[in-house]
Design a protein around this nucleic acid. Sequence first.
DNA 1: GTGGTCTAGACCACT
DNA 2: GTGGTCTAGACCACG
Lengths: 129, 129, 129, 129
Amino acid sequence: MADQFDNHLPIYMQIMDLIKKDIISGQLMPGDKIPSVRELAAELQINPNTIQRALQELEREEIVESKRGMGRYVTGDQAKITGLKKEKAGELLSRFVQGMQELGFHGADIVSIVAGAVQPGPLNDKEGL
Amino acid sequence: MADQFDNHLPIYMQIMDLIKKDIISGQLMPGDKIPSVRELAAELQINPNTIQRALQELEREEIVESKRGMGRYVTGDQAKITGLKKEKAGELLSRFVQGMQELGFHGADIVSIVAGAVQPGPLNDKEGL
Amino acid sequence: MADQFDNHLPIYMQIMDLIKKDIISGQLMPGDKIPSVRELAAELQINPNTIQRALQELEREEIVESKRGMGRYVTGDQAKITGLKKEKAGELLSRFVQGMQELGFHGADIVSIVAGAVQPGPLNDKEGL
Amino acid sequence: MADQFDNHLPIYMQIMDLIKKDIISGQLMPGDKIPSVRELAAELQINPNTIQRALQELEREEIVESKRGMGRYVTGDQAKITGLKKEKAGELLSRFVQGMQELGFHGADIVSIVAGAVQPGPLNDKEGL
DNA sequence: GTGGTCTAGACCACT
DNA sequence: GTGGTCTAGACCACG
């Protein structure tokens, strides 16, 4: 079976991203309990130490809080979460735009390529890429 | 002086990207000679072995050919090169769109965000992100 | 002591062959852990970097997988392994037959030469070659 | 266009082989004049120095003789040529048989595989390999 | 001069 | 402990 994880990014970071996405998308709401290290380790087939590392880093980023003896919880700070979303979106956007410009695509090209990708209509075909 | 190379990605990969960009942008045309390992090492202030590694990988990807004792050359296969551009663009695009969708943005949102980024007009400001 | 490695072929390729043979012959089964770079380096009296190179190439050929921090493993893809054997045999065969034909030997000649070599009987002696 | 030469064997050796094959197969007979370095260089699209090296080595092996100011000629020593043929055949044979044995094929297997390859009859199919 | 290989030794992040 | 990367310096065969 194909590995679910990418080889050139640390697994713990990929796990951080998984959890962040769950939070941003609302699957995990502020204040929700996060599955225990053991549960996540079993579910993802990953060494518990690696899960531990991921959660520690999320704590450092104040996205997750641990309550002694009660497990870890999504931060109640809503601003933190919307900030997270903006930050991620900003990263994605700038990486994309900069990359496309380096490939020689310019303003309008880029927009129309994206338009073609998100809502493929009769006027756009894949060749446009 | 600030290092010209990024810490998250191995230097040899960044060198690969440098050369790929030169090829895609037309600074290096099909059949052109690529500067020798030693020249690149001197120019980029990088150990020759690292340059060697980068060029070997490009050779594996059939973007570059080495002619014994005569140096390395950009592949003459034009299709390979245009393929390279499409591949890079496709990667960037799908990573971006998929990422944005995971963050909860949908079709039109994504397009307008990109539009705002590439051609900032009076109606869009960066804060809108 | 006579070097265990041949001069015409790079050491790292010879190490690749060693490991491939272990896999084909079943000494290393699919999913088995491969000795660490350092272990192999000590055992074969070869610089670790050279071992590393050999294993990296095997990874490129998808004969071996590395699991971060956990070592390298023989691919679990059984088809890959049987494919390996067929590929090697096919190479050997076509190189041999083509070579013999270029030397002016034809069908039956070639077969009987091989027969003489693998099971020398009273009717064939090596001088016959 | 695909290069006519293999990357992991020196070109001059490959040229030596070309000429040897011509001699063994009778395309070049004992005493025949060998094309000049310039001619071969033009024909094979190879640096004359490389051709020169190949011919020098053939002289060292006494397969070719140079007559001052008159060019190079295939040796008149017929024994040398038949010896050449035996040597080449022996190399091919032992490399093949040894290789197949390392892959786990044994006597009769090897013979029947060769038989299938040189005269494919209704009883043998490729799957047999 | 060119690429290719090898050694030695070091540092790092990941598990 | 594991692989991955990088540097430094050396040697070699090829063209």
